[in-house]
């Protein structure tokens, strides 16, 4: 491997000198509890990102999603996210054993603003709680409970600039994959394709269909 690139590292004061300080209204808009707007936000959100970190500070961010409202606000200081079949690496849950810090970012399709909920997380198999996540006869096996510490509505600038919900940008998926699957591309890149990309994609589609 080549030597890692290195650039000048700014400290806090140097960064502030460039970006300035937030307006007081923005600096104080975080709350410690989930209010009415945040509750509505969560109830309409089908997707979130989940950031965790191990004891050594190694960070990890992973996607979570299901039908709108799949994560539930249990009370103004408690959020629960069901765990459905994933890749079984459960890196987030491994991290939580070492460090309970959790950062989530909720998205609502078509909405430019996002909702950040931070707190301390733990994993449970509480049967009454899991029952609340039943959908189409499927029961979640585990749930992540987040004891909420900070709730914050992000303005929409990043999503506006990115055009994330703009249908025109859907064509990026084809440009990225060039007609085959992401994982097939990766296999080819590694120089070790285990089969044709068509066979691999068919297998993956079957996994997606059967194990969602």
């Amino acid at each position: 491997m080549s030597e890692r690139l290195a650039f000048r590292r700014l400290d806090r004061e140097e960064i502030r000198a460039v970006v300035g300080h937030p307006h007081e209204m923005i600096a104080t808009k975080a709350t410690a509890t989930i209010g009415e707007t945040a509750r509505r936000f969560v109830a309409h959100s089908p997707f979130l990102t989940l950031a965790t970190c191990d004891a050594h500070g190694r960070a990890d961010c992973s996607p979570r999603g299901d039908g709108p409202g799949f994560a539930k606000v249990l009370d103004e200081r408690t959020l629960a996210i069901p765990d459905r079949t994933g890749n079984r690496l459960v890196q987030s849950f491994e991290n939580l054993q070492e460090n309970p810090a959790v950062g989530t970012l909720f998205f609502v399709p078509g909405l430019r603003e996002t909702l950040r909920v931070n707190g301390a997380g733990y994993v449970t198999d509480d049967a009454d709680l899991l029952r609340r996540f039943d959908s189409d006869g499927r029961r979640a096996r585990l749930a992540l409970v987040v004891e909420v510490a900070e709730v914050y509505l992000h303005c929409g600038k990043a999503l506006i600039r990115s055009g994330l919900w703009d249908p025109r940008w859907q064509s990026l998926a084809d440009a990225m994959c060039r007609g085959i699957g992401v994982f097939s591309l990766r296999e080819i890149e590694k120089g070790a394709p285990t089969g044709t990309s068509a066979a691999f994609d068919a297998w993956l589609e079957d996994v997606y269909r059967r194990q969602l």
Binding site: R40, A43, K72, D128, R132, F133
Partner: peptide, 13 residues
Amino acid sequence: RASRGGSEYVHVF
């Protein structure tokens, strides 16, 4: 109280 989402949506949203 233990809504799977339907009853809560009607009552709250």
